[in-house]
Design a protein around this nucleic acid. Structure first.
Length: 891
RNA sequence: GGUCGGAUAGCUCAGUAGGUUAGAGCGUCGGUCUUACAAACCGAAAGUCGAAGGUUCGAUUCCUUCUCCGACUACCA
């Protein structure tokens, strides 16, 4: 008999099998089946694994392991993203803290070197954390959005789009982050409602005929005002249109103009117009030929244009000062509390300053159209479906994409300028020089938006722009993209556009948007809130399989999941996580069931994981249940219903296999006498266990490998064993129905015993009767099983039940039960129990009777439903009669 | 403001192509002499399926309105 620990210990197991799989090359594409490819969403190179990642990559690994076992030539390609702003910020901060230097002190070249050092040292953290989750990704193909080959792809993309006239330069209002000192795109802006004030300012007419009141949340911008606008239909102002106003504090003369964009109902219906510092005002300024006066600089400080008493002040300090100054001149009508929709930089949370600046843009309309079509005609589908609409509504209203960033870390924009003002794109300096015909050139200082490079991910990682790259030929298009809801626009849409543009083919047919991991109050997990769960802590407490299973079983399609924080003790040591504990317990159940099987393999006969034909009910039944489970799990995985797959397996393994099959097989499996029967029983139980492990392996790779290696098996690893297939020949309705009878009888006996307080140490006698020949046969064939599992001494099966005073009665599945209770319990308990049984049936019978007496029901409901109701009613009536009869014996 | 999602047992969540007794895990209660497992076993209690209308013989499920929560989105200064 093998020595096996009583509890599953995950850590040594994980340490053992992960390197084994990797060394054996199981994570690499193999075989000549059809390809199944996933490129993972590359996490930020600065990142570390959080709960959302854990879920994301668990789903990846589950699918890829499943497909691998199904014989596909699988590739799951990992990588990281250089994350321009985030990475530069991390290294700048480090530089500031440790050496008190800014990036400007170092200079561009040195600074970029420092970032590379940092990336080489810390950039693999998140990749290593994925190993801990058990991810079977092809690490040899790991890509980084800034590595050499990838950079070529980015250049190629830029130049091609340039040549196609899709890239242009514009001097416009952009979202500017005064902290990061860069422009950011619209969708990198976070919006938040903040408490603020609405200031009502008085702008006097130049001719002294009173004043116009304008409302603003940002009084500091008034220094740059070049007009006040009202709605042309607003009668309140029609007489004053065109009149001049004197801009307070500045003294500039500005006109009162009319523009449609003004909402008459808001405030006083008059808007101050600051074309250089507000997107709306900018547009308004263009329409009306207004000057653009820049009063706030890149760092958020007031410029010289703002006037000498304000120049150099921070924008928020200036706001205060200006309000004071206006107040002093009695030019403030009132100040109201107001909720200000505030734009924040999604990286550093600094308040965005709309700023006039020169940036590069990509024209989106032309690129978006095919990508819209692809979703509309179903070549690309979102799962859950409702994201189709969300995607389409954005794509149909798409605006041009600002792609330049004033950073040093990233793909430098391949645009070159000659002294005399020529501008062109080139793949490298060589090419640029050629195009310049000997003129001196300089390259644009800016870098590209990170999403510009990650938008090429599904094909750039496979070798594009080399159209003949073997991986590109062999693995594109990928099969599914698994990603988070919040980057549908930032990333998914752009991959679809670029995939169609450069490859003429969709990058993936399925986009599975996985659940957002929330905390228990429904809030999104975030560093700021400190409500995150560290997956590594969870793994160290319960093992990777437990974490994976805990996440998968709650990942209903399209539904967010709530995940509790880790409970910690005083020293912040993690001690408990209930939701993962449930999964850990399941793992332990698998462990112990396997332990039972392994301990009873016997030494005499060689046992193999093969099904030996059997007429035995439990055998027929478990084979049918296993088969059904295979069918359901496969369908669930196929449909991205991870929770259904997990739930089905949980139920099958625990309830069917452990609670019933093992129990019903125990006598034979544990017998010490060698016999063909015992050997056959052992083979069968090993067979079912081994198949179960294969089904579970994509979800829980470690524990299944560990046990599988101990069991009789063929092959080197469960991770390349075949995923079980549904077999119609194993369906067995009859066995399932008969097993219901057996389980029903045993459960009823247990129920009666427990309800009337028969101690578990006492055995009871059991009288059974049934008119059903099949049920009779089931009982006769399972006398020993009923005795053992129901703790029964003697069983009598007859056509009618004897009349025995003081006995308990039960009815289940057409079988009547009687348990003599003399000397065992108090009758009051049994009377109470029978009373409950009666009233339960009474209620149901009455409900049915009402229904059946309703002529409309009988007429209109389908005959099946009516028939069923009649039968059930009759059954209930018969049962009630028997139960009432048994009450009489309890006196 | 707009769009979308959610509201089912004390908690976290499944489910119902409209039809008998709405499920699971955790938690709770009672029991444990059990040929693997107390991280377990056996049994039980617990739900007017968010509210109000409507369609229907029949609604937790379909429709309308409402309430509360959440996400996304928007140029309301």
């Amino acid at each position: 008999m093998t020595e096996i620990p009583k509890a599953y210990e995950p850590h040594s197991v994980e340490k053992k099998w992960y390197p084994f799989w990797k060394e054996q090359g199981y994570f690499k594409p193999a075989g000549d089946g059809p390809h199944y490819t996933i490129t993972i969403p590359p996490p930020n190179v600065t990142g570390s694994l959080h709960a959302g990642h854990a879920l994301c990559y668990t789903i990846h690994d589950t699918l890829i392991r499943w497909k691998r076992m199904q014989g596909y030539k699988t590739l799951c390609l990992p990588g990281t993203d250089h994350a321009g702003i985030a990475t530069q910020a991390v290294v700048e901060k480090q530089l500031r803290q440790t050496e008190k230097l800014t990036r400007h002190d170092l200079g561009r070249e040195k600074f970029v070197e420092r970032i590379w050092d940092w990336v080489n040292q810390y950039g693999n953290v998140i990749i290593n954390q994925m190993h801990g989750l058990g991810c079977s990704f092809d690490w040899d193909r790991t890509r980084f959005t800034l590595d050499e080959g990838y950079a070529n792809a980015v250049l190629e993309c830029f130049v091609k789009w340039w040549d196609a006239g899709l890239i242009y330069r514009g001097n416009r209002i952009t979202n500017w982050c005064p902290q990061d000192l860069t422009a950011i795109s619209d969708i990198e802006v976070e919006r938040e409602d903040r408490k603020g004030k609405l200031y009502h300012l008085r702008y006097p007419y130049k001719d002294g005929s009173g004043f116009v009141v304008v409302a603003t949340t940002r009084p500091e911008t008034m220094l740059g005002d070049t007009a006040v606008a009202v709605n042309p239909k607003d009668e309140r102002y029609s007489d004053h249109l065109g009149k001049a106003l004197t801009l307070p504090l500045v003294g500039r003369e500005i006109p009162l103009i009319a523009d449609d964009f003004v909402d008459r109902a808001f405030g006083t219906g008059a808007v101050k117009v600051t074309p250089a510092h507000d997107a709306n005002d900018y547009e308004c300024g263009l329409r009306n030929g207004l000057a653009q006066i820049v009063v706030i600089d890149a760092r958020g400080k007031m410029t010289d244009e703002a006037g000498e008493q304000y120049a150099g002040m921070d924008r928020f300090a200036a706001r205060k000062k200006i309000v004071e100054d206006l107040e002093a001149q009695d030019l403030i009508e009132k100040i109201e509390d107001y909720t200000v929709p505030t734009a924040l930089c999604d990286r550093c949370k600094t308040v965005i300053e709309p700023r006039l600046s020169e940036q590069w843009y990509v024209k989106m309309k032309e690129l978006a159209q095919p990508a819209i079509e692809a979703v509309k005609d179903g070549r690309v589908r979102f799962i859950p479906e409702r994201y189709n609409k969300i995607y389409l509504s954005w794509m149909e209203n798409i605006k041009d994409w600002c792609i330049s960033r004033q950073l040093w870390w990233g793909h430098r924009i391949p645009v070159w300028y000659t002294e005399d003002g020529e501008v062109f794109a080139a793949r490298n300096e060589e090419e640029a020089k050629q195009k310049a015909n000997g003129k001196a050139i300089r390259q644009d200082e800016d870098v590209l938006d990170t999403w510009f490079s990650s938008g090429l991910w599904p094909f750039a990682t496979l070798g594009w722009p080399d159209q003949n790259a073997p991986d590109l030929q062999g693995f594109y298009p990928t099969n599914v993209l698994i990603t988070a809801q919040e980057i549908i626009y930032l990333w998914v849409a752009r991959m679809i556009m670029s995939g169609l543009y450069f490859m003429n083919e969709i990058p993936f047919p399925d986009v599975y948007i996985y659940a957002t991991v929330l905390d228990m109050t429904g809030q999104r997990m975030s560093k700021n809130k400190g409500n995150g769960v560290d997956p590594l802590e969870v793994i160290s407490l319960y093992g990777a399989d437990a974490l994976r299973f805990a996440l998968l079983i709650r990942t209903a399609k399209g539904q967010d999941i709530r995940f509790a924080p880790l409970e910690k003790d005083k020293d912040k040591k993690p001690i408990r996580h209930k939701q993962v504990e449930e999964a850990r317990n399941f793992g332990n159940k698998i462990w112990n069931a396997s332990r039972f099987v392994l301990m009873n393999l016997g030494d005499a006969e060689p046992i193999a994981a093969k099904w030996v034909a059997s007429d035995n009910l439990a055998d027929r039944w478990i084979l049918a249940q296993l088969n059904k489970t295979i069918e359901q799990v496969t369908a669930a995985l196929d449909d991205y219903r991870m929770n259904d797959a997990a739930q089905t397996l949980y139920h099958f393994f625990w309830d069917d296999f452990c609670d019933w099959y093992i129990e019903l097989s125990k006598a034979l499996v544990t017998s010490t006498e060698p016999s063909d029967q015992a050997t056959a029983a052992r083979c069968r139980i090993v067979y079912v266990l081994e198949k179960s492990l294969r089904l579970l392996h994509p979800l829980m790779p470690f524990i299944t490998e560990e046990i599988w290696q101990m069991l009789p098996h063929d092959g080197n690893s469960i991770s390349i064993a075949e995923f079980p297939k549904f077999d119609a020949a194993h369906e067995d309705r009859e066995a399932q129905a008969q097993m219901d009878t057996l389980i029903g009888v045993i459960t009823k006996v247990r129920n009666i015993r427990s309800e009337v307080n028969v101690p578990q140490s006492s055995k009871v006698n059991l009288y059974l009767s049934t008119a059903d020949d099949t049920a009779k046969q089931v009982i006769n064939n399972n006398i020993e099983n009923i005795k053992r599992l129901g703790r029964v001494e003697e069983i009598r099966l007859a056509d009618t039940l004897p009349t025995i005073e003081a006995s308990a009665r039960g009815i289940v599945a057409g079988v009547d039960l009687l348990i003599p209770l003399a000397g065992l319990i108090d009758f009051a308990k049994e009377r109470e129990r029978i009373g409950k049984e009666i009233s339960k049936r009474d209620n149901e019978a009455q409900g049915l009777a009402t229904k059946l007496n309703n002529p409309s029901f009988v007429e209109r409901a389908s005959t099946d439903v009516v028939q069923q109701a009649r039968e059930r009613h009759a059954e209930l009536v018969a049962e009630l009669e028997k139960l009432k009869g048994s009450l009489k014996t309890l006196v």
